[in-house]
Write a protein that binds this DNA or RNA. Structure first.
Lengths: 254, 254
DNA sequence: GTCTCTGTTTCACATAGCGGAACAGCGGAT
DNA sequence: ATCCGCTGTTCCGCTATGTGAAACAGAGAC
């Protein structure tokens, strides 16, 4: 708790908090019963009942044969975030092409609230579920994002979030991170050498709009055994640059 | 109100309703200010303020330079619905392949609460935004879904929702619909001849799991000028059957 | 400098959400 | 058949909680 350094009280609407507590519990396990939800949330049975009645009435939750499920109506809302910028939509297609052409896993990542969010992906690693959030310093795409920031912003990021060691290879020293970001700015691509998961390597490049606004990072990753140096530092970066360039072109001319 | 034939009172949690009223208003237009949201929702300024404070605290809404936006954290929840069945994920890839190979717009549609929901799509028609809902009887994919139901279920559907005329070609006669569904069951594919939008034709086929559970409908659509009879009734159905079959195979063997 | 927009906070009030407990409905076990 | 244990549903009294109006603050615009 106190590690966050936040002085935010839990102000606001506590009823709304309960609603989302229930939704998050449903996200964790669907098709579950009311009494099961009371167990997981610690709320009283009548409260859960009343909230679920509201949510199903609004269509955000669906009941089917005694179990409750997240409804597709939430998808409609969240899709707004995903299509906020046309560049995000353009990136979607490029992620797919990348996945198909390389036969590796591909992602498009965007920053929100100091974390990396998977916005598009190709390949079925449960870990890269869309909407999932990861610490920026442990991902190739995340380092690309950090490399876009100035020193002060990076310093602030480190101060707020720290540099947690996800694996033995994760960068935990601010100075090392600083040098790494410099290298990324110079090269134009970032590499991840098992800093997020053992045995996993990746590459990522920044994506810009035609007027050079930064959009997010386009990345490819896979097993270290296959991601040898020439593949990682030659072939993939140039392919990624091509795709990032195509996004820019798409945005410029329909 | 009374047209729904529902006797549902607005029971439940009205505070939660307010929260989602605000979220829906944000979906409609992002980057908007608090006072603007009070205008749109009709709620008091302090209420909107308090709700937004809660939502930003929880991360479902994000504030950036004076404007409020839907946060990606909602995406994480709603993605649960989208990946509920592995078949949905398999369909995602096939939709993309369909779009690339035909150079037409492609969709994967699922039924929820008597409506067709776009779960995956290829192509950038604003009308087919993911999560958007359409009446089943006006879509090729929707008719594929209706064709899976028995006569009683279809009758009930008609009684509850009616058969609204979206265009001049929309099927509005229950008997005509009945015959149409029979034809679809027989042929194994459905055709949409400008029943949802003038100038737009489409084809769709059902998708099943290896143990013949119905998952949803895979469809392709485009301008009537290009969707001539042989293309619509020969080429596309066989391509769609192939893709639907590949989904089944994917589910059966990794 | 004032004026006019914002966002933020305060406050008194009634309402709306709360949890406990009672009721109903179902299925399995005996 | 009967009981028992488990659900979901409803009722109810209480108080916490969300509410709107109004006051306050802060930032531009002019």
């Amino acid at each position: 708790m106190s590690t966050h350094g936040e002085d935010e009280t839990d102000a606001g609407v506590s009823t709304t908090r309960k609603t989302f507590e229930i939704l998050e519990a449903l996200k964790a396990e669907e098709g579950v019963t009311i009494t099961e939800l009371t167990r997981r949330t610690g709320l009283s049975k009548s409260t859960v009942y009343r909230h679920l009645a509201t949510l199903t009435d609004l269509g955000y939750v669906v009941e089917r044969d005694g179990g409750y499920y997240i409804g597709f109506r939430l998808l409609e809302i969240s899709e707004q975030a995903r299509t906020r910028k046309t560049g995000y939509t353009a990136a979607k297609r490029k992620v797919f092409e990348l996945g198909q052409e390389t036969d590796e896993r591909a992602v498009f990542i965007v920053e929100e609230e100091g974390e990396g969010v998977y916005v598009h992906r190709y390949g079925s690693l449960a870990d890269t579920m869309i909407g999932k959030r990861r610490p920026l310093h442990s991902l190739a795409s995340g380092k690309v994002i950090l490399a876009e920031w100035n020193d002060d912003a990076v310093r602030e990021f480190v101060a707020e979030n720290g540099l947690e060691a996800i694996t033995d290879n994760t960068i935990t020293d601010p100075d090392v991170l600083h040098d790494e970001l410099d290298r990324i700015r110079e090269r134009g691509y970032a590499v991840n050498n098992q800093e997020h998961m053992d045995g996993l390597r990746g590459v990522a490049v920044p994506v810009y709009t035609p007027d050079d606004e930064f959009l997010g990072a386009l990345g490819v990753f896979g097993p270290a055994s296959r991601f040898k140096d020439d593949y990682l530092h030659e072939e993939l970066p140039s392919l990624l640059w091509d795709k990032a360039g195509e996004i820019k072109v798409t945005l410029a001319y329909g």
